[in-house]
């Protein structure tokens, strides 16, 4: 069967207009707050070590270099700008993630990422709320801990539940041989995806905070009142849709290198190739990243929410199947 290529855009004219309005809204929002717009490479020398993020190789030939990766986020380059004294910055970036195709995913998408020196996670959450409420005219988000949403919708305490309890709960979706391939965080991700997420932000937007330290990624970790190690990481959900991921940023270069190396060990265990550590980024941390909070927000999803679209393809001029 020969499929004829589709030349027409997937997004309607009104959607293209709404996208342009969103970009103007974002730029106005940050101009008013004195945050500088920057551009950093889409094409970088390094990819990322995250075990669940697959960078797309770029195959660049340049003097003394071949390889390169399309960036999964502008994070490392933007933190290098911060370390060089840029002050508060934002970027509307195109980012790329291999294998992510679905109703809420396109392998290339638009990400709004910004950093606020001197902010902690709470202050940045307030600013995210201003932006999202300003664009969606929705209620202001409430804040719930990862523990609270897991207890409410998955029926277990993500910090206290035993491995056996966790797996028993996961059997609603997977059988034992499949679950053998999931570690504790994998099981939590399964429950988050299928038991919890669909309920989040239905009545009003909700920030989920205080993730288990094992899911800290690039966020600082501290101890909560119960003695659990929690990450200063937040995600915003609106109508069951995950909109952003933010951190009170880790600035410790030694800890950062340790996490990168731990990532690579997990990659090896998962049968994925090691990724080279971004030494320029680590050097910037060593030189001194100012205390800051940062967040990455999916603009295509923000557009989906404004327009009531159930599929990301409706808000992209050319989703990947017709790109």
């Amino acid at each position: 069967m020969v499929e004829r290529p589709v030349w027409r855009p997937a997004a309607a004219r009104e959607v293209l207009e709404s996208r342009a309005q969103l970009l103007a809204f974002v730029r106005g929002f940050f101009a008013q707050r004195g945050v500088l717009e920057v551009e950093t490479p889409v094409l970088g020398r390094c990819g990322v070590t995250d075990v669940h993020l697959d960078s797309i190789p770029a195959g660049v030939s340049a003097p003394g270099f071949s390889g390169g990766w399309l960036q999964t986020s502008p994070e490392y380059h933007m933190k290098r700008l911060l370390a060089a004294g840029s002050g508060p910055i934002y970027q509307v970036a195109r980012v790329f993630r291999n294998g992510e195709v679905g109703r809420r995913h396109n392998p290339e998408f638009s990400m709004l990422e910004w950093y606020r020196p001197g902010f902690d996670d709470r202050q940045l959450m307030a600013e995210v709320a201003d932006l999202v409420v300003g664009w969606l005219s929705c209620e202001r988000p409430e804040t719930l801990s990862y523990r609270a949403v897991m207890q409410r919708w998955a029926g277990l305490d993500p910090f206290e539940a035993s491995e056996a309890e966790l797996r028993a709960r996961c059997r609603e979706w997977m059988d034992d041989p499949q679950l053998a391939g999931l570690d504790r965080d994998g099981c939590l991700d399964l429950l988050m995806s299928f038991a919890v997420e669909p309920h989040l932000g239905r009545e009003r937007p909700v920030f989920v905070t205080a993730y288990p330290a094992s899911q800290a990624s690039l966020a600082r970790v501290s101890e909560d009142a119960r003695g659990h190690r929690v990450a200063h990481r937040f995600e915003l959900y609106v109508q069951g849709l995950e909109l952003c991921n933010g951190y009170w940023e880790l600035t410790d270069p030694v800890e950062q290198r340790r996490r990168f190396e731990a990532d690579n060990r997990l990659r090896r265990a998962a049968g994925k190739p090691d990724m080279a550590l971004d030494e320029a980024f680590l050097a910037a941390l060593a030189a001194g990243l100012p205390d800051c909070a940062g967040v990455a927000l999916g603009l295509d999803r923000l557009l989906m929410l404004r327009l009531g679209c159930g599929d990301i393809r409706e808000v992209l001029a050319f989703p990947f199947d017709r790109a």
């Binding site: 992510e100 679905g102 109703r103 899911q215």
Partner: peptide, 14 residues
């Protein structure tokens, strides 16, 4: 085939 992925977490297919 529905692709589901929480943020930086494990991806699943329903």
């Amino acid at each position: 085939n529905e692709f589901v992925k929480p943020g930086k977490g494990q991806a699943f297919n329903r």
